[in-house]
Design a protein around this nucleic acid. Sequence first.
RNA 1: GUGGCUAUAGCUCAGCAGGCAGAGCACCAGAUUGUGGAUCUGGGUGUCGCGGGUUCAAAUCCCGCUAGCCACCCCA
Length: 418
Amino acid sequence: MPRAQPIKAARGVRDILPATIPLWRQAEQGAADVARRFGYQEIATPIIEQLELIQRVGEDTDAVAKELYRLDKRGSQELALRPEATAGVVRAYFEGGLNQGPQPSRLYLIGPMFRHDKPQKGRYRQFFQFNVEVIGGASSGFDAEVIELALGWLNEVGVQDLRLELNSIGDGKCRPAYLGRLTEYYRPLKSSLHADSQLRLERNPLRLLDSKVAQDQPFKAGAPKITDYLCDECAAHWAAVRRLLDAAGIEYQHNPYLVRGLDYYTRTVFEFYPGGASGQQDALASGGRYDGLAEAEGWPSTPGVGFAGGLDRVVELIAAKGDQAAVKPAADVLVLPDGDFAVEAAEVARICRSVRSTAVDYEPKSLAAKMRSANKLGVKFVVLLTPEDAARRSARVRDMASGEQTELEWVELPTRLA
RNA sequence: GUGGCUAUAGCUCAGCAGGCAGAGCACCAGAUUGUGGAUCUGGGUGUCGCGGGUUCAAAUCCCGCUAGCCACCCCA
């Protein structure tokens, strides 16, 4: 009989094992702490949404067009796993009546997102994001605030060496004219562009700017920059955001090629990268303003700005720095019955648990073997039970650090172990 | 989605001009006189990722598949 293949994890997803849980806690706690410090409230939305919501807000993105996890249709609704959080948060903002409360709503969310991408380091099919959204606020102050919050989070969790890239992509008033100029510039060069970029020229010229294909690079420098074509309102907003960042002492680089491919994105866009790295899948956080999103979802036009931070990548950075917290033992106390009396051992453990975390070694191994594993577990105390001890409701407590061993009554255990 | 590299014990890996499956660590048992750490002794715990092919003979050569890593694309 051939043995069956063991069933492994699905492709591109991974387990977070006990040893790395502290790192995740650190990243999540840091996120929650900083968000609360800025006056943001936590929100949790479902990881499934109606397909239409997701498609409305991302039709032209790879995340939706190619990488979406669509669920089998059950009943009348078509559903999909969320590839990002903002669409759902904006939906919840209206459905939950947050639009009726004081404006803006400052919200944060921590949770898993799903994209059917090709797995690689720092890129997983289920990955975790820290999302921050300000909904119902149009002022430039909010743009600067979420940038400061993102930076605060990264610093809080120990990521110091960062590069912040910033740009403005205008709005529905000024962007069309700019796109016209951009297309005019690229049209004569079309045959020299990469095939994908030729397609972009027709469908989404803005994306020509963030093409990373080597073939397209020479033409970027001569391309018109959108920040030179902003309308008065967008120009004022752009200047205000930069002024606020300067005043906050936050350094940034203006990257005129930083864009978002979707129409509902407006004005501010930004991305945080780790300082030294030059890789491609290493954006730690990215965000921007999305004044057209609510409307795209069919709700009243409402401004918003926010960012998404990558927990997986931040955790990897923390881990790489190597300042790993000592792995805490699972239990402080281990009860070792020297013989077959699980009932008494369990009762002793119950008593010990009133003061310390306690586990029991029920396996029929030699006492030496049990002591070995007690040592490996790193427990502080071992409570030894011989058959005679069990009969007279006494036990021997051994302090593993000093090797000191004392015999006492079960009722005295809490005092001795406390 | 495209290309390259990789897959042998629990872990890290060696073995590859085809000829009995190995090391270190880990693990298990024992000794050190009743119960751990240090030391010593003994133990291999394996469908060589999966499926086919070539061959007297395949971990080793060929093909396919799957998974991981790296780069591209893209993104957190």
